[in-house]
Amino acid sequence: MENNMRWSAIAAILGTSLSLMAVPAQASESIQGQWYTKGKRAVVTIAPCGQNMCGRLTRFIEQPKNGVSTDVNNPDPALRKRKLVGLPILSGFVPDGKKWRGKIYDPESGKTYRSIVTAGKNGTLSVEGCIAMFCQAQTWTAAK
């Protein structure tokens, strides 16, 4: 009798864990890789950084319009001499359903925005920068 109770408890535990595993998860598509920004002006490399995903400006295809290669618009004077190449512009991205949520830094304005990144079909990323409820999106394409 005691063995039956033990097996019933094991079956109940296994049944519970199996039923939890059977629930389909809406996993986020990977955003890792190298991506051309809008207009193929630059390449951003997205990779894990700790438990999150982050992106760094890897190289320019088209040099900045003002010819400046440092983070001159940063609100922190101590950071204004940082080189743009290697600059972290995506930070703290975590999966949320089919989207990734984190922050995006715009070196042209020196501002950081709440951001949502979604992997699309055909090697694209939808990259949004948001202020309150208003978001502006760009489509980035896979760099080859």
Rank of each mutant, 00 (worst) to 15 (best):
K98H: 10
V23D: 04
C54E: 07
D96A: 06
V127H: 00
G67F: 11
F60N: 03
G92S: 09
G55L: 10
Y105R: 08
T141M: 09
W140S: 09
T45N: 04
K65H: 03
Q32S: 10
A78C: 10
L125H: 06
M5N: 09
A142V: 12
L87Y: 11
Q34N: 11
G55C: 09
Y113A: 02
R114Q: 14
W100I: 01
Y113H: 08
K40C: 05
E128L: 04
R59L: 06
D71A: 13
A142S: 10
A143H: 05
D71W: 09
F60C: 08
A9Q: 06
G86I: 00
M21P: 01
E62L: 07
M5R: 07
I46V: 13
M133T: 15
K81W: 03
T139A: 02
M1A: 10
K111G: 01
Q26L: 12
L87F: 07
G120L: 12
S28Q: 09
W100F: 03
T124Q: 12
T112D: 07
L125P: 02
T112P: 02
M133F: 11
N73R: 14
L90Y: 06
R114S: 13
G50V: 00
K38A: 15
C54R: 12
A142Y: 09
A119V: 13
K144P: 10
R114F: 15
W100V: 01
Y36P: 00
A12G: 05
N52R: 02
K121F: 13
A11R: 00
K99Q: 11
D106L: 06
L20C: 10
E62V: 15
K40R: 09
K99C: 05
N73Q: 12
T141N: 10
T16W: 01
E29F: 08
W7L: 00
K98T: 11
V72K: 14
S115K: 02
A22L: 05
K81Y: 13
N52H: 08
A143G: 11
S30R: 14
P75G: 11
R101Y: 03
G92M: 00
R101S: 02
T124A: 11
R41C: 11
Q63M: 12
T139W: 03
F60I: 03
M5Q: 13
M1R: 11
D106T: 13
A142L: 12
S8M: 11
N122A: 10
K40T: 13
N73T: 15
A132N: 14
K103A: 06
G120D: 06
C130G: 08
V117F: 03
C54Y: 11
L84A: 08
L125T: 15
I131H: 11
N52V: 01
L20E: 03
A137N: 09
K111L: 10
I61V: 08
K38S: 15
D106A: 10
R41V: 15
A22V: 08
K99D: 07
L57K: 09
I89L: 02
S91P: 01
K81A: 02
V68G: 15
P88E: 07
S17P: 02
I104R: 08
G50S: 05
G123L: 12
D106R: 03
V85M: 06
R56H: 12
